[in-house]
Amino acid sequence: MASIAIPRSNTGVMLSRKQRDVTSSGATMSRYALLTRHEVALPAFISAGPRDQIIVTLDAGLTEGSIPEWVRPTAEAFADILELRSGWNSYSAQPVDPRAVETAGSLLACIMAPSTPMPVIVPTVRGGLQLEWHRNGLDIEISVNPSRPITVYAIDNRSGQEWEGEWSPDDTTLSSWIQRL
């Protein structure tokens, strides 16, 4: 197994993206270190680690060089939105709940292929987030909130085909839409 770790600094001081330290370690465990202030577990691709880390765990056999392109920028985007404070939209928005990021990570681990383009990741005002793709004639929006089911809206703008519903791990409908991106 290999991992990408996104830990917090010992001092707790926030650093800008440019200042974030990137390191790697042993042959069986690869790590990128980025600073953030939350502990977030993203199963399959990102798992629980030491306190205040986002750890991305890759399938056995994957090396640092074969990490899917979407993984690292996605983990960075999660780390970025977790740093938002109350009122981040100028209209009383709440901070992003780490549980929403955990849930989103679990979802991505289920639906993403190595070549799937990275989603746009946007925070929502009540502590959730949206994963969005708008390409190849498709609009796909996934809403992830800490205390509600994951909801999906997808439309093929060329054919008019639409799908709207709740996502569950054993439902392959969303995966089939994602494959068309």
Binding site: V122, P123, V125, E132, G137, L138
Partner: peptide
């Protein structure tokens, strides 16, 4: 906010996310 802005390839332009049009927190 900048968090809610992205390039929509289908529309060929930068636009706000639907997340930018919610009631207040």
């Amino acid at each position: 906010p900048r968090w809610h802005v992205f390039h929509d390839e289908n529309m060929g332009r930068v636009r706000p996310s639907s997340a930018a049009f919610e009631d207040d927190g």
